[in-house]
Amino acid sequence: MAVTIAKEKWTSKVSEMVLGTEPNTVKVGGESTLPFLHFEGEIPNRPITALEVWDLEPTDWPDILKKPFEGVLNDPVAWAKKNVEYGADVVALRLMSAHPDYKNATPDECAATAKAVADAVNVPLIVIGCGVEDKDAEVLEKVGEALNGKNCLIGCATEKNYKTITATAMVNGHSIIASSPLDINLAKQLNILVTEMNLAANRIAIDPLVGALGYGIEYAYSIMERARLGALMGDKMLAMPVICFVGQEAWKAKEAKSPDDENPEWGAQERRAILWEVITATTFAQAGGSIFVLRHPESVKEVKKHIDKMMESNAY
């Protein structure tokens, strides 16, 4: 019996972002259909993975997460190299030391670290601040300068600090992460503000501030689906690739942190925790996520394996 394949006629597509410099650039976005529906449109670039590097040793990471980085947790340069060995498409440097509760490192100190890391690896770099909005603006201004021309992705820019960060990005040739809490209108509004400063729309990545599996994943999932639909229907201010800080959220979950003997009915911690991170990422991939910032090297391996498969055609 004949079945007429149901295809949507989308009128637009996700914008394409280029990170890094030749010959080591990485592209994301550019899809003209819903995630992995090759039968309906073009998916020129695969979603990518990033592994986090901190500029100080994380105190609250569980042992299974520290183990793969033994010996480098105090050395961002060595850690970043390790991430590349582990197969991360890009490295995500988190400048936690800038946080007033930690070392309150100066913008210049942070910029020096960022430069050292950028010079040590050949993959593109994401640089994220410590999450304190004022401080991040100061820090990223210096970091942006130090990384001039390296075409990094820097953030997170919020409603409060986007001006400084956008300006740095424009002057020094970077793209920015625009964060807004789980609300499609807020995301759109921030993108409008940023583009009004004349940063090209394809130099913005949307960060919807995702929650992990079991901890609000469904909200981000739906926001991302709606943003992708918006993009395909021609809304340029929702057409940016989406970045998901998966590791940061997944490794907060009790299901990832709880050791083998605490809840024996949950199974072994290592497998459970890695699956927590992987499933959070792969679920977001189904909703339209493009950049997955992860923490465990096994997660990178598994997410990549899955994406390899999903990038194979399913055209009829």
Binding site: E265, W266, G267, Q269, R271, R272, I279
Partner: peptide, 20 residues
């Protein structure tokens, strides 16, 4: 039937099927 495999899936199902 490894609970470490099933727990994430049961959680995902709960999340995807909650009323938005």
């Amino acid at each position: 039937d490894n609970p470490a495999d099933i727990l994430p899936l049961i959680t995902l199902r709960l999340n995807i099927y909650t009323d938005p």
